[in-house]
Simulated scan of single mutants.
Amino acid sequence: MNEVRDWRRFGAGGEPWFEFDAGRDLDGLLPEILTVPLLGHLQTYAGCAIRGGHGRWLLHACNAYFYHDDMRASKRHCTTARRACQLLMEMDARSRLNNQERLRALPMARRDELTVTCTHDPVELERLIAGSPL
């Protein structure tokens, strides 16, 4: 296994991105790739936003949420196992829930500008691969 030897740390500063702070000045990355601070799951947690060729953004929110219905259903719903995992892994409940509310509002308010997805939901992955709306 190869050892990673050249780690870099990036701060949370930068220009605002929608309703979030963004680390735009990431040395070595294109300006179309941003980090988006999403504290709560971990103390120094961030998602990754990528602007596509048509100007539309994809925000990979990583572990900021675990289930599509937690973000997109009219009444929030997450499976029991995923909810338990989120609670066991969180470092800051208030920040995690605050970021989930902001993530929940983004696709509703900015449907034509961006898509938000997470790490743990195979339904979202299949929809992204198929080019279907989330």
Score class of each variant (00 low, 15 high):
Leu58Pro: 08
Gln100Trp: 01
Lys75His: 12
Leu87Asn: 06
Trp7Ser: 04
Thr115Val: 15
Pro16His: 09
Glu113Ser: 11
Pro31Val: 01
Glu19Arg: 09
Glu90Asn: 14
Asn98Leu: 10
Leu38Asp: 09
Tyr65Trp: 05
Cys85Glu: 06
Asp27His: 12
Phe66Pro: 01
Gly55Met: 11
Tyr65His: 01
Leu34Thr: 02
Tyr67Cys: 04
Arg8Leu: 15
Leu39Asn: 03
Leu26Ala: 13
Gly28Val: 05
Met108Asp: 00
Tyr67Trp: 11
Leu30Gln: 06
Arg127Glu: 13
Trp7Glu: 03
Val4Gly: 03
Arg104Gln: 09
His77Pro: 02
Leu106Asn: 01
Ile33Gly: 01
Leu103Lys: 02
Arg51Gly: 09
His120Ala: 05
Ser74Val: 13
Ile129Gly: 01
Tyr45Leu: 04
Asp21Met: 01
Leu103Ser: 00
Leu26Trp: 07
Phe10Met: 03
Leu106Gly: 02
Leu88Val: 04
Leu87Ala: 10
Val116Cys: 10
Glu113Trp: 04
Leu58Ile: 15
Gly40Ala: 07
Gln43Met: 05
Asp27Phe: 12
Gly55Asn: 11
Leu26Glu: 10
Trp7Met: 05
Leu58Gly: 07
Pro37Tyr: 00
Phe18Asp: 03
Ala49Met: 07
Leu106Gln: 02
Val123Leu: 06
Arg83Pro: 03
Ala81Glu: 12
Gln100Asn: 00
Arg82Glu: 06
Leu106Asp: 01
Cys48Arg: 08
Thr117Phe: 11
Glu101Leu: 14
Cys48Gln: 12
His41Gly: 00
Gly13Tyr: 04
Ile50Trp: 14
Leu39Thr: 09
Gly14Gln: 11
Arg102Gln: 05
Glu3Thr: 15
Leu106Thr: 05
Val4Lys: 04
Arg76His: 08
Cys78Thr: 08
Ala64Gln: 00
Met1Lys: 05
Phe10Pro: 00
Asp112Val: 02
Asn99Asp: 12
Phe66Ala: 14
Asp112Gly: 00
Arg5Gln: 12
His41Ile: 02
Glu124Leu: 15
Arg96His: 15
Thr79Cys: 06
Gly23Ser: 13
Pro16Arg: 12
Asn99His: 11
Pro107Ile: 11
Leu59Glu: 08
Ile129Val: 14
Asp70Asn: 11
Ala93Glu: 12
Leu26Tyr: 06
Tyr45Ser: 09
Val123Ile: 09
Glu124Lys: 08
Asp27Tyr: 11
Arg94Trp: 05
Arg9Lys: 13
Ala105Phe: 07
Leu134Gly: 11
Asp6Ala: 00
Gly28Arg: 06
Cys118Val: 14
Phe20Ile: 12
Cys78Met: 00
Asp121Gln: 06
